[in-house]
Amino acid sequence: MKWLAIRLMSPVGLLVLWEVLVRLSGSPRAPSPSTVFVAAGELIASGELLAGLSTSIVRVLAGFVVACLVAVPLGLVMGAVRSVERNLDPVVESFRPVAAIAILPLVILWLGTGNTAAIAIVAYAAFFPVLVNTISGVKNVEPSLLRAAHTMGLSPLTRLHAVLLPAAMPSILVGMRIALGVAWTAIIAAELAVGAKSGSSGGIGQMMFVFYAYSIQLSGIVVCMAAVGVVAFCLDRLVSLCLTFITPWSNAR
């Protein structure tokens, strides 16, 4: 009990401090913990929050899957074949610093403001962490494993799927974990930036935009921020659970 009380002290203290400061300031717009809780209750009860979140989550997962489908095979080949890596590395490295949000104008012009555009942004954002970690995973494969495979006469293609892919799997999964976090950040930013244009279709980011630009409801914005944080946390925990499940050998080494 005492231990729990100590752990709860700082978050509860912060909430109290927040409430007190808002009351003291007397600003009608400043969101306080109490108004945020009320807003959260309303948004959950009406189903809006869940609808917004699920739209965004589906986009993230779709974009994430697309990114993995491209990045893992490409990363395997880039990591395994020197000449391919030499050719593609400059291209990859010059795109990598370009943030997902920076390709938004082009994506909107090409794909509009609907799901396709959202998935494209997410896929772009998730692509690089998966690719980079796949390449480094392949390059760090224990050389003796490759030599063992070589002495058993594996063909290059078999070597790729029977040795390199599983050996690089722990690193690939780390990349995927990072990618999912980045993808979630990117989708919120993209939905916010697209705003409530006609033809765009919801998502938690757009919900925030509406609170910001139309109804000017600060408590709603804070509710969205908190929801984004909670979802990010859950996604990460889910992935790290998958990691220990898929690659039980990599933690135990």
Partner: peptide, 13 residues
């Protein structure tokens, strides 16, 4: 020819 390596080179997965 079969080879056995000093570090065994077992596939951990």
């Amino acid at each position: 020819r079969g080879v056995m390596f000093q570090d065994y080179a077992l596939f951990p997965w």
